[in-house]
């Protein structure tokens, strides 16, 4: 099936199998490999992207469902070569170790800060319910998001 998707500001048009998951379309067809696959049960959040401005798990969407939509991935978060405050925050506060969950964490946090620019620690932790990190114990991820919240 033919789909038209705007990803990180660029229009793309491809023929995909209906069963192609959006995450595989992004990774395999568009070669945007910053979006990761960490599980097969929609639980880990490593594949989080923004679909029409909202954080979604791209492993739980068919590429055909994204037809006509705008997608932002981690690769599209920085603007004009400037890191997004969250990207900066994760660097400044050591919010990542192996980096595998990081794109998903950042994309989820971006959705949180859009709706709640000054979240409490508890609100940040609650917002990360759908994202698993095995390296950091979340301590510095929370601080990274607080850093971005201050900056934004």
């Amino acid at each position: 099936m033919k789909i038209n998707v705007k990803v990180n500001g660029t229009a793309h048009s491809h023929d995909v199998e209906p069963r192609t998951l959006l995450v595989h379309y992004l990774r395999d067809t568009l070669r945007l490999t910053g979006t990761h696959v960490g599980c097969d049960t929609s639980g880990c959040g490593a594949c989080t992207i923004h679909l029409d401005g909202k954080a979604v798990k791209s492993c739980t969407l068919l590429a055909v469902q994204a037809d006509g939509c705008e997608v932002t991935t981690i690769e599209g978060l920085a603007t004009n070569g400037n890191l997004h405050p969250l990207q900066e925050g994760f660097h400044q506060e050591h919010g990542l170790q192996c980096g595998f969950c990081t794109p998903g964490m950042i994309m989820t946090a971006a959705d949180l800060l859009k709706h709640n620019p000054k979240p409490s620690e508890a609100e940040i932790r609650h917002a990360l319910e759908g994202n698993i990190c095995r390296c950091t114990g979340y301590h510095n991820i929370v601080k990274s998001i607080q850093y971005a919240s201050e900056k934004m």
Binding site: T48, T108, D111, L112, A127, G130
Partner: peptide, 9 residues
Amino acid sequence: IGDIQVRNR
């Protein structure tokens, strides 16, 4: 329900 991402879809 679920998490932010799940609630969005």
